[in-house]
Write a protein that binds this DNA or RNA. Structure first.
Lengths: 345, 345
DNA sequence: GTCATGTGGGAAAGCGCATTCCCGTTGCAA
DNA sequence: TTGCAACGGGAATGCGCTTTCCCACATGAC
């Protein structure tokens, strides 16, 4: 049994298709109340559910908003997704999800799929990359996006413009002041930490990571500190863990406390997790700060110093919500970078 | 400029609509290679992207799979969402997301919206509830689902059947052995813990919570222990936090260590977070176990004893992936329920 | 050479709906 | 009473595509 159609409803109510349509879906023309009532009754009796596909086809507007993330189970993206979801809800739309694990090629396919579904707008979260292996993918992605925009689509990108995208109509970037905030974090840390700094970053070419590294270094420089050494690894917990493992001996051997900046929270957690079984305690033997202020991680101990980012707002902004304030982060210094009492003075 | 259509492609290639369709979208009839090539070239030149809406309308199959969660930012749901997403990818579909914060009324609307989009199948994650205030909502939800199934839709529900749903064709439940696993957890804990047990549960009527409570009590009984006191609170971190606050004094006053079972991990984390500033240390002053084994929480210290649930698999199963093994959880005893050395013997 | 068979392309009929015309009614002013 | 505008309902068209049906042609066997 297929779902009942509008024409069935119209027939049962004894009215024309047009009238039934006008009654059931908001039209500017309002049929008389008695007729409307008859139509509604008929629809109710048949359990009529309008076919959104057909509506979309007829009106050429799908009520869909596409969301592209690396991994929906990553709390960073999940938080953004929540914001997008909320904005969609307000706009009376639904969100279409695509996970791509960050490959530009996959993202291109996702954009094409969204375009095929005639999504009203597309949100791309997740860091852009200029790595060589992504070059071809980036070009194709940019072309696909460009085409989508020219066909009237709206695109919201979190963080950085898609590499090579010519800024066309309907394309907007939610800027995240990664560099400034990282600089701020460095400044705050430099105020109390007197030893070396070390940065655990994602792979080179990842914009978000690179921005944060640059900002942090600038902050250090402004504070009159020497540049920090940079270790490159995966942009996730596993990457942090690995780096932590590699670092343990060095920390234990050194007399001075090291201040580690991991370019995102989950990496910082990974570092901490690797260091702990090695007997390296935070903040006693080393201090560490992250970035993002992931909600699920706030109960970690030692509480992680980080930079708070309004991820939900970012999602809302990218989804085109006009009432959301612009992105502004806040440095949160917590226990993980506290200077222990015995080493003060 | 609207996207180019199939008929434009056909015209440019000098073939009929039918032929173009057969070339570009998998049909059983394969046009001759030279013609096919011409069509593909034309499509390429025009940047043709098939209109999935129109395709869906014509073949009455949308390639959409709807996912209903309470909150996509909750790591539990995010993990399930990842599984659903993967299954969708394998089936060459896209997932449509809806967050409802658990209200049956909202879920009903989400189902209706999915039905309107002619989603091929719907996955409902999140706990069902028999609370009085959800009664009406549940009835409507069941009716909506029933209608959707009769119209040929497939529904996968995580955990428990929707209250009042008559098991129709196309309706399947991914059973999660909450009760058995909770019993297993209780048995394992009872083997080493000799004091009282206490359960921090979600609101009464929430199936998942109730099952875990019942299972835990049964496990205690089987081990010859008296039933645990049950505290009811919110099924989230805030609920756990509140309960922890209320519990702190009692724990401090008591000479005996209490073993707390929070019915999910985030609640357990909430409890721990509330207890910590009160000077109550886990596992020294009390032990605690959770449920779900949320990935993001695995780096918490003390490591949380819990029951591992294959959340991604659950998502995959609910999305109708046939290759996924059935759900089986595992009790994970970790540091949070370890008996400290000084109190042994 | 004829007819059955098969092959491959095209015309056309929808899929379910919104919307533009079109036309019969009604209300009101002149 | 007539004329005109405003109103409200219906027929028909089209959104972009799939698919059935039909037909022209080529091929083979007899």
């Amino acid at each position: 049994m297929a779902a009942s159609t509008l024409s069935e409803v119209a027939r049962l109510a004894g009215v024309s298709l047009a009238t039934a349509s006008r009654v059931l879906n908001g039209s500017s023309r309002k049929p008389a109340e008695d007729i409307a009532e008859r139509v509604r009754e008929a629809a109710d009796k048949l359990g009529y559910v309008p076919n959104a596909q057909a509506q979309a086809l007829a009106k050429s507007s799908s009520g869909l908003i596409g969301l592209i993330v690396h991994d929906i189970a990553d709390p960073y993206f999940a938080a953004i997704a929540r914001g997008v979801q909320e904005a969609a809800r307000q706009q009376n739309r639904m969100v279409l999800l695509a996970s791509t694990s960050g490959a530009a090629q996959d993202e291109k396919e996702a954009v094409a799929a969204f375009a095929a579904r005639r999504a009203d707008s597309i949100v791309i979260a997740g860091s852009r990359s200029v790595r060589a292996e992504d070059k071809q993918g980036n070009i194709e992605l940019a072309a696909e996006l460009d085409r989508y925009c020219r066909n009237g689509g709206h695109v919201g990108v979190v963080g950085h413009p898609v590499v090579g995208a010519s800024t066309t109509e309907g394309y907007h970037v939610v800027k995240v002041p990664n560099e400034e905030l990282a600089a701020g974090l460095a400044a705050d840390l430099a105020a109390t930490h007197h030893g070396d700094f070390l940065i655990i970053a994602g792979p080179e070419g990842l914009y978000t990571s690179d921005d944060r590294v640059r900002g942090f270094q600038r902050g250090l420089a402004d504070a009159g500190k020497p540049a920090a050494e940079v270790i490159r690894t995966g942009f996730n917990r596993a990457g942090g863990y690995e780096a932590g493992l590699a670092l343990a001996d060095r920390i234990k051997a050194s007399a001075e406390r090291l201040c580690i900046f991991a370019v995102n929270d989950v990496m910082a957690i990974g570092v901490t997790a690797a260091l702990r079984p090695e007997g390296v305690w935070i903040p006693r033997d080393a201090t560490i700060a992250g970035f993002d202020d992931i909600e699920t991680l706030r109960d970690f101990r030692p509480a992680l110093s980080t930079v708070h980012l309004p991820l939900e707002d970012i999602g809302r902004l990218a989804a085109g919500d006009p009432d959301t304030p612009p992105v502004s982060g806040v440095v949160k210094l917590r226990r993980s970078t506290e200077t222990p009492v015995e080493s003060q003075a």
